[in-house]
Amino acid sequence: MADKTLLSPVERELVEQIETLLADPTHTHNPLRAPLAALFASSEAQRERLERLVRISDGYHLISRSQSLTLSEQYDRQLRRLDKLARISDRYQNSLRELSEALKDAALRDPLTGLGNRRFLMERIIEETERANRKGEPYALAILDVDHFKSINDRFGHEAGDTALNQITQAIQNGLRTYDLCGRWGGEEFLVILPETSLDSALQVAERIRRDIQALTIGIHNRSDVRITVSLGITLYQAGEPYSQTLDRADNALLQAKAAGRNRIESA
């Protein structure tokens, strides 16, 4: 028998009325009873089938609905994971980039004086050489070497030597014009590049630096008489020549300044 709960009150009343009539023995011989009983049975069977169909169909609907909910939850979850992955990955990438910048800086900078190192200077000389040839304006190159530096280290220790190098660095930078460049070429050797500068102007700058350094009082505790001097070799870039020749010339000028008694400037 099909479920009656899904019927409307009118339908249910009708079904119950027919059931009552069919069950009543006084109608046993009514000629309409047999066809009514058959019709009623067939109608009930149809109703039952219809209900089953609806139940099954609802079931499928429920399954597909819950599947789509699961899928959308999974999708949201994956999105959140992807977000998180990107965030973490970006952080790693940022720290790598900072590290590589720090390494680049370390590779080009002298840690004691904070000046550019020899590698940095080489890059700049190459650039300046190209520029000088392009514009036809030579640059001046000066190599500065501290006189008797070894004896400072020997007499007062390496810390005093480091202090002297830092004070010399300061003096050179004070003496330079804004567009001049200075770096630490070697132990107690500094290199100065003066772009688009005549030899006369370069000599003036060099002389100012030489005098300033000579006037320095090196800050060594308990001493106020420690003086220091420097020798410089200066040259002008000659159009078309490889920069190594310019460097050699400046080096030779420096040697001459040393040979002539130090604390002086020679040009070549």
Binding site: R81, K84, L85, I88, S89, Y92, L96
Partner: peptide, 12 residues
């Protein structure tokens, strides 16, 4: 210390 993206994913 350092992890590439696919390592970060594996760790997750």
């Amino acid at each position: 210390v350092y992890m590439n993206t696919s390592s970060v994913k594996a760790m997750m």
